[in-house]
Computed example of a mutant assay.
Amino acid sequence: MKIIPMTAEACLKRLEPADAEEMFWLTDVNRPYLRQWLPWLDMVREVKDTARFIALTIDQHHRRQGTHYGIWYNGRLAGTLGVHSIDWANRKTSIGYWLGAQFQGKGLMTQAVAAYLDHLVFGEWDLERVAIQAATGNHKSRAIPERLGFRLEGVLRSNEFLYDHYVDHAVYGMLAAEWRSRTSADESGSGT
Rank of each mutant, 00 (worst) to 15 (best):
K48Y: 07
L38I: 09
S184Y: 13
L152R: 11
A177C: 15
K2Y: 12
K92C: 05
A101D: 06
E146R: 10
H62K: 12
R14W: 09
G100Q: 06
N138H: 02
S190F: 13
N30A: 02
R129T: 13
A134L: 07
W72N: 12
W72M: 15
N90T: 07
W88N: 07
G191I: 13
I144Y: 01
S158K: 14
G107K: 11
Y97W: 00
L162M: 01
S188W: 15
E153W: 09
S190L: 14
I54T: 03
G79Q: 01
A134M: 02
H84W: 08
A176T: 08
Q36Y: 04
P39Q: 02
T7W: 08
V113K: 03
V29H: 06
K106T: 01
A8Q: 15
T93N: 06
L15W: 01
Q102N: 11
Y97G: 00
L56A: 12
R64G: 06
M23Q: 14
Y166N: 10
W125I: 00
T57V: 07
F24E: 00
Y69P: 02
S158P: 02
N138L: 03
L127A: 04
E22S: 14
Q133H: 11
L15A: 00
K48Q: 13
E160G: 09
K140N: 08
K2V: 15
R129Y: 11
P39D: 00
L12D: 03
R142T: 08
D168A: 02
T183K: 10
H68K: 06
E9F: 10
A10E: 01
A51G: 03
A131T: 15
K92D: 03
A20N: 04
A170T: 06
Y69F: 12
A78F: 06
L175H: 06
G123E: 07
K106Q: 12
A55S: 10
W72C: 10
W88S: 08
E178N: 04
E178V: 05
R147A: 09
H62G: 08
I132G: 01
S190K: 13
S188N: 15
A114W: 09
L26N: 09
E21T: 13
T27V: 10
L152I: 03
W72V: 14
T183G: 04
I144V: 11
L148P: 01
V47E: 04
L15Q: 00
G66P: 03
F122D: 01
L156S: 08
F24A: 06
P39E: 01
S158M: 11
E153H: 08
Y69C: 03
A115H: 12
G189C: 09
G105L: 05
P32K: 04
V171T: 12
T136V: 13
A143T: 03
K140E: 07
N159Y: 06
L152T: 03
V155K: 10
D186G: 07
T136I: 15
M43G: 09
L127N: 08
S188G: 13
A10Q: 01
W40I: 01
R76D: 13
W25S: 15
P32L: 00
A143S: 15
D28K: 11
R52P: 02
L12E: 05
G189Y: 07
R180E: 13
L56F: 11
R64I: 08
I3M: 14
E16F: 13
G189D: 08
M23Y: 13
Y69M: 00
